[in-house]
């Protein structure tokens, strides 16, 4: 009897959070998804049909996908390199990497985007330097295009990838590496047989987290893309606020959400919820 009372108490104490989530999150979310099926002009799949067939929408989705995949792969590769040094480097190296990873966290994405613009534009730092050293004659088009957007996004996302990878490297027993060395394995053999398999869950978590994050990028493409690199988040904003075309905006949001949820489920399935929580903490 006593245990039943306790569990009932626990249940009721936990109740406010789910209630809040249902009222403040799930219900409005259902409302937004309902728009995608109902506006404009009656119930139907018109908005989804438009997403599948309208060349502009398709090209924006493909561009978003292309940029996000590229940025994710580059970010995770850089992050692995940094995390490796954060785990195995000298104390001095660790400090440099940690500061380099953490400082960008405290800067707003808007400031970072404009800082990159100052560096990458035609008369910016990078081009001025390259020209003064005679390496290039004409300034390179580094910003106000997809390349600029990818540089800005990668810089933003690398720290988010470093932490899960670092965490998985941290869990690797040093003795395994020492054992492999004593058995004559070089760096690559050790990497292939010990580091890579044991850090794979961290890499996968980092990949999915960064990819999900990158899908919603808004400010960086707007600033570094020169108004030309329209990605899906910006297009949703345009439909919602400029055109008050809520149906299409809601349908695109819905699709993004399904993609994100599917990726999260895949992540949990592959890595396992317990290991994911371990990695995250």
């Amino acid at each position: 009897m006593a245990t039943r009372d306790a569990s009932w108490l626990g249940f009721s104490l936990a109740l406010p959070l789910p209630t809040l989530l249902v009222l403040a999150y799930l219900l409005p979310l259902a409302g937004v998804l309902a728009w995608s099926m109902s506006t404009p002009g009656g119930i139907g799949f018109g908005n989804y049909r438009q997403i599948a067939t309208d060349p502009l929408v398709v090209s924006i989705l493909l561009r978003t996908l292309r940029i996000c995949v590229a940025v994710t792969l580059i970010s995770v590769a850089i992050a692995y390199f940094l995390a490796y040094h954060l785990r195995f480097g000298s104390p001095w190296k660790k400090r440099v990497v940690l500061i380099g990873v953490l400082i960008p966290f405290w800067l707003s994405s808007l400031i970072r985007a404009f800082a990159w613009l100052m560096i990458l534009r035609a008369n910016g730092l990078a081009n001025t330097f390259l020209q003064s050293t005679g390496m290039i004659a004409e300034p390179l088009a580094l910003a106000r295009n997809e390349l600029g957007v990818m540089i800005g996004m990668t810089h933003f996302l690398v720290p988010y990838a470093v932490l899960p990878i670092f965490s998985s490297l941290q869990h690797i027993d040093n003795r395994l590496i020492q054992a492999s060395r004593s058995l004559g394995a070089g760096f690559w053999r050790g990497f292939k047989d010990i580091l890579a398999p044991l850090s794979s869950s961290g890499v996968l978590a980092a990949t999915i987290i960064v990819f999900i994050f990158s899908l919603g990028f808004f400010v960086t493409p707007a600033v570094l893309g020169g108004g030309r690199v329209v990605m899906v988040a910006e297009y949703i904003y345009l439909q919602m606020f400029q055109l008050s075309n809520w149906g299409l905006g809601a349908a695109l949001s819905g699709i993004l959400m399904v993609v994100v949820v599917a990726l999260m489920l895949a992540l949990i399935k592959i890595v396992g919820i317990r290991r994911l929580m371990d990695t995250a903490s």
């Binding site: 502009l56 090209s59 561009r63 108004g227 400029q242 055109l243 075309n245």
Partner: peptide, 15 residues
């Protein structure tokens, strides 16, 4: 003409 024109315009500048 705003919606239809803006779509064509966006397609042009982002294409």
């Amino acid at each position: 003409n705003y919606g239809q024109a803006l779509d064509k315009y966006t397609a042009l500048i982002s294409g």
